[in-house]
Amino acid sequence: MAAAKKTKLPTILITNDDGITSPGIRNLVEAVKGLGKIVVVAPDKPQSGMGHAITIGQPLRMSKSDLFEGVEAWHTSGTPVDCVKLAVDKILHGKPDLCLSGINHGANHSINVIYSGTMSAAMEACIESIPSIGFSLMSYNYEADFAPARHYVRQIVESLLKKKMDKHLLLNVNIPDIPMELIKGVKVCRQAYAKYEEDFKQRKDPHGKNYYWLTGAFVNFDKGKDTDVWALENNYISVVPVIFDLTNYPLKAQLEKTWKIK
């Protein structure tokens, strides 16, 4: 009788922008344990708001970490995008089957996706033809309850691993900070047009010199009921499929017809 064929476990790369010691990445690792071979490569310090920044002109350093029992982990001096690049080139020596970024402390819905280190790490993986997901919990509280997030992260990842994924799959998943019993489910959404109306507060340092502190209020200009902001305000988990092609195709077609520049 022929021996049963062993199924190769998928390799899952995990990173974030809050740093390797954050509760969010620890909860992400716990959420997907057993679903594949997990490798963590994350910044050695918080890198929120770094967007798609990469390190140029200075050395990157990388060291092994023992923060996650039974899981290979590394921390780097670089940005979230650097972490993905280093993981592929120097640690895995190839591409993982899936990249997960997060779980971020705070929202990455609407325009936040542009600034987010969490989503930029996932996007870098997507650019490298690695299916990827960014996860965020709508709480900045260090003691936030990640139990509902862990539950839904595992469900989403299990569902995706059951079938062949598009190599450019990129999902932005935001989870409301409410008890499990109040979450109504998961909604696939579009990105809302919402942003921060910003203000720089001018202050004086101890030497009498001016410095500026960025503040602002979040404003939703989009009243659609199919957006990530609406879903989260109504106790749903929002899932927005994202692409890195920023071409405005309707405008491209219009300009091709109307521009007469020679």
Rank of each mutant, 00 (worst) to 15 (best):
A125M: 05
A125P: 10
C126K: 15
I127L: 03
I127R: 09
E128R: 15
E128L: 14
S129H: 05
I130A: 14
P131Y: 03
P131A: 00
S132K: 08
S132G: 02
S132I: 01
S132D: 11
I133H: 13
I133V: 14
I133D: 05
I133A: 06
G134H: 01
G134M: 01
G134V: 01
G134D: 00
G134F: 00
F135V: 01
F135N: 03
F135A: 04
S136H: 07
S136F: 09
S136W: 12
L137S: 14
L137Y: 13
L137C: 01
M138T: 02
M138S: 03
M138I: 01
M138G: 05
M138Y: 12
S139I: 05
Y140V: 01
N141S: 06
N141D: 03
N141T: 00
Y142F: 14
Y142R: 11
E143W: 14
A144I: 07
A144T: 05
A144H: 15
D145L: 09
D145Q: 09
D145N: 10
D145V: 09
F146D: 00
F146E: 00
F146V: 00
F146I: 00
F146H: 02
A147N: 10
A147W: 09
P148E: 02
P148H: 06
P148R: 02
P148L: 03
P148W: 11
A149D: 03
A149F: 08
A149T: 12
A149P: 14
A149R: 04
A149I: 09
R150V: 11
R150H: 11
R150L: 12
R150M: 15
R150T: 06
H151T: 12
H151S: 13
Y152C: 01
Y152G: 00
Y152F: 02
Y152M: 00
Y152N: 04
Y152T: 00
Y152K: 01
V153D: 13
V153A: 05
V153I: 15
V153R: 00
R154F: 12
R154Y: 08
R154W: 12
R154E: 08
R154G: 13
Q155P: 11
Q155D: 06
Q155T: 03
Q155M: 06
I156V: 12
I156W: 05
I156T: 11
I156D: 04
I156C: 09
V157Q: 09
V157M: 04
V157K: 09
E158W: 09
E158P: 11
E158R: 15
S159G: 07
S159F: 13
S159E: 08
S159L: 09
L160W: 10
L160P: 07
L160H: 12
